[in-house]
Amino acid sequence: MRIIRIIAQIGILYFFYYVGVFLVDLTHLPLPASIVGLLLLVGCLQMKWIKIEYIRDGAGLLLGSMTLFFIPAMLGIIDYPELLSINGLILIVSVIVSTLMTIYFAGIISQKIEQKELKMKEKKEGKEGKIIESSHLHH
């Protein structure tokens, strides 16, 4: 029974994927079809058109073994021996440096934004607190 349920749920995910493929073909949007499908599915979940239970087990199974699905594509590097050249080395070093800089900038800036957001919330809560207080006084 569980197997049939999982297969049916994967069918639902496939359906959204193919709707994504259809929309990308139709509109020539430069977006991966799977991301379009994902956004549509999140929208349907949000609107309560689809219950989360309808996809939970299927999504769980696919996400749990997702690594397996991109191994065949990774093997494709055997057709690109260029990676073992000077240009390949520059490519790899640039990825390393860029990743370190990204972690640094994103960390520092999001920490600043977080402090601002916390302050904003405190102010808001402070105000709401006062309003409640003053309405208490009136009654």
């Binding site: 496939y14 994504g20 769980g60």
Partner: peptide, 23 residues
Amino acid sequence: MEGGKWLQHLLGPAVVGLAYPLY
């Protein structure tokens, strides 16, 4: 890839499945 493509094909619905943790 004659065989590999069948595994790779599951990537599409798997990415759609990311909707579950996001939601």
